[in-house]
């Protein structure tokens, strides 16, 4: 990765916006400003890691306290959905990295395409999460394409559908919504609600981060369209990328902990 040049040679009238960029008056050089921004953002990422650290800590402690509840809870999750979502995020990380590379090499429109794909993959992640994971658990309504649905074929209630027939009701599956202790009718271990508490908090806070990341991506997509970023100035894209990779990384930890280890 090349460091941006300290000065911009192009003439003020014909140059693109990124060529005319003037660094903040309190920095000595643009390179120093870029370094400072990155240092600051890495610190911010450290705080994000610590934020999730709290959840991982809770996970670990309760796992030791209530091993059977953990086994029971995690076996109620479908690893296939989780794995698919993992793949979605991994690809999006790749496109994110590509977009930075493209900006550095002054291929702005390709960079924007990459950003757009990243955004859509993020959106796909959130929609999959809602439709395939949260909805059935809350209400008993399964998305018709949900791979988990065939486990419950015998319990599908004919004719009880929602959302133009896209969702089908499975008798006795839907745990109650948050607010009623998550007492699943099929729960055996009395401590299982604690598992669900950790599951929901972890994934919901992660999903919130995905949404924030998407907002940032939309922003740089828009700014890139106005010619703000280019080979000598791309701090915004770089930082958005760092954030997106972090969001990805956290999911890489959540996925095996929640879906794979029983």
């Amino acid at each position: 990765m090349s460091t941006p040049h300290a000065t911009n040679a192009a003439s003020p009238t014909t140059a693109a916006r990124w060529q005319r960029y003037v660094h903040g008056h309190h920095w000595r050089t643009q390179a120093e400003e870029f370094d400072g921004c990155k240092l600051g953002f890495w610190l911010f990422l450290a705080t994000e890691v610590l934020l999730f650290g709290g959840i991982f800590c809770g996970y670990a402690i309760f796992r030791v306290l209530y091993p059977t509840a953990w086994a029971e809870g995690s076996s109620a999750l479908d690893w296939k959905i989780g794995a698919f979502n993992t793949a979605v995020l991994l690809v999006s990380s790749y496109t994110m990295a590509m977009s930075i590379y493209c900006i550095q090499t002054n291929k702005i429109s390709r960079a924007r395409w990459n950003l757009a794909v990243t955004f859509l993959l993020g959106l796909a992640f959130v929609i999959l999460k809602l439709a395939l994971e949260y909805t059935p658990k809350w209400s008993g309504y399964f998305f018709v394409l949900d791979p988990a649905l065939h486990h419950h074929e015998s319990m599908i209630v004919e004719g009880k559908t929602a959302f133009f027939g896209l969702f089908q009701f499975v008798e006795g599956y839907g745990g109650k919504r948050p607010g009623m202790l998550f007492t699943y009718p099929f729960a055996v271990d009395p401590q299982v609600p604690v598992w669900w508490a950790i599951y929901y908090c972890g994934t919901a806070i992660h999903a919130a981060h995905v949404l924030i990341g998407m907002t940032l991506i939309a922003r740089v997509w828009h700014l890139a369209g106005k010619g703000v970023y280019g080979p000598t100035y791309y701090a915004g894209v770089e930082i958005t990328g760092l954030y997106w990779h972090l969001v990805d990384l956290i999911w890489i930890f959540l996925f095996p902990l929640l879906y794979l280890i029983h």
Partner: peptide
């Protein structure tokens, strides 16, 4: 931050942490 967030979650949704 996460502690208070979880506490707020707990109060809103009655999940047990």
């Amino acid at each position: 931050g996460i502690t208070l967030l979880l506490l707020a979650f707990e109060r809103f949704t009655r999940i047990g942490i």
